[in-house]
Design a protein around this nucleic acid. Structure first.
Length: 470
RNA sequence: GGCGACGUACCCAAGUGGUUAAGGGGGAGGUCUGCAAAACCUCUAUUCAGCGGUUCGAAUCCGCUCGUCGCCUCCA
């Protein structure tokens, strides 16, 4: 069985065959850094991360590029409002993004290019488009892509370009272009806006051109996978294809993958409607990053996903269940013969896990395979049917699957010395059957997010995915 | 108006032609435990938005109806 992915270009699942055998070039539209990203944004980034992790787990050598858009209208607007250079604003929120991404265990992309550091690449691309007649200048020094020169325009979004609705927003565009549907490659210089002096004149880049320039700079003119939210299909990705293929004459991206929206209250989570939640908000309510990660990746990427208190609670419980199972295996000790059925059990889980993810990253049955295995392992731990070696190979197996999921363990795997001391005190209290002290220490540790289970192998601890409140 | 996605238990969510409709959460009862917690066991959809049709057989295919969401405009 091989990996199949639903390509937006064709609308159907296709076997994934990399352009260069064994290697995958993958680009993800990253954040525009003028505010902290919300959890809806992170759904799409974590979807890309899940894909990246799975490809690596399958043995592909993956190059993952995620851009950071550090110049655009909103950044300029907010920087002006604050009276600071755009770089000061963008770097501030880029740092927040990086920190949020790290806590959510997003694999660090191999390259995170910033738009402002790739102006020359964009200029070269625009020059090629001008030379080939796909772009034109306007009086204010802007340069537009001429959609009429590109018959394939609209193919990705399945839109007929001649029947696009022309709404108020399009008409109100301040730039003067030949056709309302044409999009800006380069925006002419304006008072109070940052500008770059370039071979195509002064100004600043349009939004779409950066992704074409940076993806091709690091992955070549044709690469395997490009991901983003469904809202980017049109116009952003449509425009990327047009400008890239018009410039190079080659296919730009082989497989386009789009993630459905995260919803809250039945509607798309979006900054403009205000129904957003940021990672920090979720943590403030007592949930751990890994619970949030689980909530965001646990549903199929092409299905809309409702986010809320209920989904977070369920995610925290699910993640706790996994952590508990792992802790149980780690503390389990028993000499003697092992369970001869164990290898087959693990193999079955691996087969189901892989078959599910191969099927367009269908994570639900993959998680079902993990939870079924967890039940079997717990049952054996309860019955003390495993050997110490069995337990540790089962734990290693789960950790291997977690290279794909990234939800099983919290960052610090060692208990802080202070908490470890409380644990020792509690063990001593229990040895002298001092239940009052034992219970008090258990509560104290729970308040610090460490849950204790008393087992035949002694105390076992794990970090709570949902901190105790009240 | 155009294009697209979708409607499965109390909630989330797999299943896309064939024995008992995955899994997670929640709920009820039980076992274990100093008490807990965790874990394990049992139960929790004769039914898949509705109505027709195709078929020996449909949640799965076809048609219609109702409802939800997204894109067409900055947007993950």
């Amino acid at each position: 069985m091989t990996l199949r992915l639903t390509n937006t270009l064709t609308g159907r699942p296709e076997p994934f065959v990399p352009f260069v055998p064994g290697h995958v070039g993958m680009y993800t539209c990253g954040p525009t850094v003028y505010a902290p990203a919300h959890v809806g944004n992170f759904r799409s980034f974590l979807f890309a991360d899940l894909l990246r992790r799975y490809l690596a787990w399958l043995g592909f050598d993956v190059t993952w590029v995620m851009n950071i858009t550090d110049v655009d209208d909103k950044i300029i607007r907010d920087a002006r409002r604050e009276g600071v250079p755009i770089r000061s604003l963008s770097e501030r929120y880029a740092a927040v993004f990086l920190d949020d991404a790290r806590r959510l265990r997003m694999t660090p992309p191999d390259v995170m290019p910033r738009a402002t550091e790739h102006i020359p690449e964009m200029v070269t691309l625009i020059e090629q488009l001008l030379a080939k007649g796909h772009a034109y200048r306007t009086d204010d020094g802007s340069i537009f892509f001429r959609i009429a020169s590109w018959p394939a325009y609209g193919r990705l979004a399945r839109l007929d370009p001649t029947r696009q609705r022309v709404g108020e927003r399009v008409e109100s565009d301040e730039y003067d272009k030949d056709d309302v549907r044409d999009f800006a490659l380069w925006k002419g210089p304006r008072e109070g806006e940052p500008r770059w002096e370039t071979a195509i004149g002064p100004g600043r880049p349009g939004w779409h051109i950066e992704c074409s320039a940076m993806s091709m700079r690091y992955l070549g003119p044709t690469f395997d996978i490009h991901t983003g939210g469904v809202d980017l299909i049109f116009p952003h990705h449509e425009d990327e294809i047009a400008q890239s293929e018009a410039a190079t004459g080659r296919q730009f991206v082989r497989t386009w993958l789009h993630c459905a929206h995260l919803q809250m209250g039945g509607e798309k989570m979006a900054k403009r409607t205000g129904n957003i939640e940021r990672p920090a908000d979720v943590y403030a309510r007592g949930y751990s990053p890994r619970a949030l990660r689980y909530a965001l990746i646990a549903a199929h990427y092409r299905a809309p996903l409702e986010f809320g208190e209920e989904s977070m609670r369920a995610a925290a419980a699910a993640v706790d269940r996994l952590a508990t199972a792992l802790a149980a295996l780690d503390t389990y000790r028993k000499d003697g013969p092992g369970d001869p059925a164990l290898p087959a059990l693990l193999e079955e889980a691996r087969t189901r896990f892989t078959a599910a993810l191969d099927d367009d990253l269908n994570i639900s049955p993959a998680l079902a395979a993990v939870f079924d295995l967890v039940r079997e392992l717990n049952r054996r731990v309860d019955a003390r049917a495993l050997s110490t070696a069995d337990a540790s190979s089962a734990a290693a197996f789960l950790r291997d699957l977690d290279r794909v999921l990234g939800v099983m363990e919290e960052e610090p795997e060692q208990l802080e010395p202070e908490l470890a001391r409380l644990l020792e005190e509690r063990a001593a209290a229990r040895a002298r059957r001092d239940w009052a002290t034992s219970d008090r220490l258990r509560d104290e540790l729970a308040d610090r997010g460490v849950l204790i289970d008393d087992t035949k192998d002694g105390q076992r601890w794990r970090r709570a995915a949902e901190a105790r409140r009240g």
